[in-house]
Simulated assay, not measured.
Amino acid sequence: MRYASIPPGYLTTQLAAKACGVEPATIRDWVRRGLLQRAAGSSRHPLYLVDAVTAAKVTAKPTRPGQRATR
Results as ranks from 00 to 15, higher is better:
residue 27 I to A: 05
residue 37 Q to W: 00
residue 39 A to V: 12
residue 39 A to E: 08
residue 46 P to H: 10
residue 48 Y to E: 05
residue 60 A to D: 11
residue 36 L to F: 08
residue 9 G to L: 08
residue 16 A to Y: 03
residue 61 K to C: 10
residue 69 A to N: 07
residue 62 P to Y: 07
residue 41 G to F: 06
residue 64 R to H: 07
residue 16 A to F: 03
residue 46 P to T: 09
residue 70 T to H: 07
residue 60 A to C: 05
residue 20 C to F: 01
residue 6 I to T: 13
residue 11 L to D: 08
residue 25 A to N: 05
residue 8 P to L: 03
residue 49 L to F: 10
residue 46 P to Y: 05
residue 53 V to D: 08
residue 28 R to T: 13
residue 63 T to M: 10
residue 55 A to D: 15
residue 38 R to W: 00
residue 62 P to I: 05
residue 42 S to Y: 04
residue 54 T to P: 04
residue 17 A to F: 04
residue 69 A to E: 01
residue 8 P to V: 12
residue 68 R to Q: 08
residue 15 L to E: 12
residue 24 P to Y: 01
residue 56 A to E: 01
residue 5 S to R: 15
residue 3 Y to A: 02
residue 33 R to C: 10
residue 42 S to K: 13
residue 62 P to T: 04
residue 56 A to M: 06
residue 5 S to D: 12
residue 2 R to T: 15
residue 32 R to N: 07
residue 27 I to S: 02
residue 63 T to Q: 14
residue 19 A to S: 14
residue 48 Y to Q: 05
residue 69 A to T: 10
residue 41 G to T: 07
residue 47 L to Y: 02
residue 41 G to Q: 06
residue 54 T to Q: 15
residue 50 V to S: 11
residue 54 T to W: 12
residue 55 A to H: 08
residue 45 H to K: 11
residue 1 M to W: 06
residue 67 Q to I: 02
residue 19 A to W: 00
residue 18 K to Y: 00
residue 59 T to H: 04
residue 34 G to H: 02
residue 68 R to W: 02
residue 47 L to S: 03
residue 64 R to S: 05
residue 59 T to W: 00
residue 43 S to I: 09
residue 50 V to C: 15
residue 3 Y to T: 05
residue 18 K to P: 02
residue 69 A to C: 10
residue 37 Q to E: 14
residue 40 A to Q: 04
residue 20 C to K: 08
residue 28 R to F: 01
residue 68 R to G: 01
residue 58 V to Q: 13
residue 40 A to L: 00
residue 39 A to S: 14
residue 50 V to M: 13
residue 33 R to M: 13
residue 30 W to G: 00
residue 4 A to V: 13
residue 30 W to A: 03
residue 3 Y to G: 02
residue 32 R to M: 06
residue 71 R to F: 10
residue 17 A to R: 02
residue 33 R to D: 11
residue 69 A to V: 13
residue 69 A to L: 14
residue 53 V to E: 04
residue 49 L to V: 09
residue 11 L to Q: 15
residue 55 A to W: 00
residue 9 G to C: 12
residue 28 R to W: 00
residue 58 V to P: 01
residue 58 V to E: 08
residue 33 R to F: 12
residue 65 P to Q: 03
residue 1 M to T: 13
residue 4 A to W: 01
residue 39 A to W: 09
residue 50 V to E: 11
residue 64 R to K: 11
residue 47 L to T: 08
residue 67 Q to W: 00
residue 32 R to Y: 08
residue 70 T to M: 07
residue 65 P to H: 04
residue 63 T to N: 10
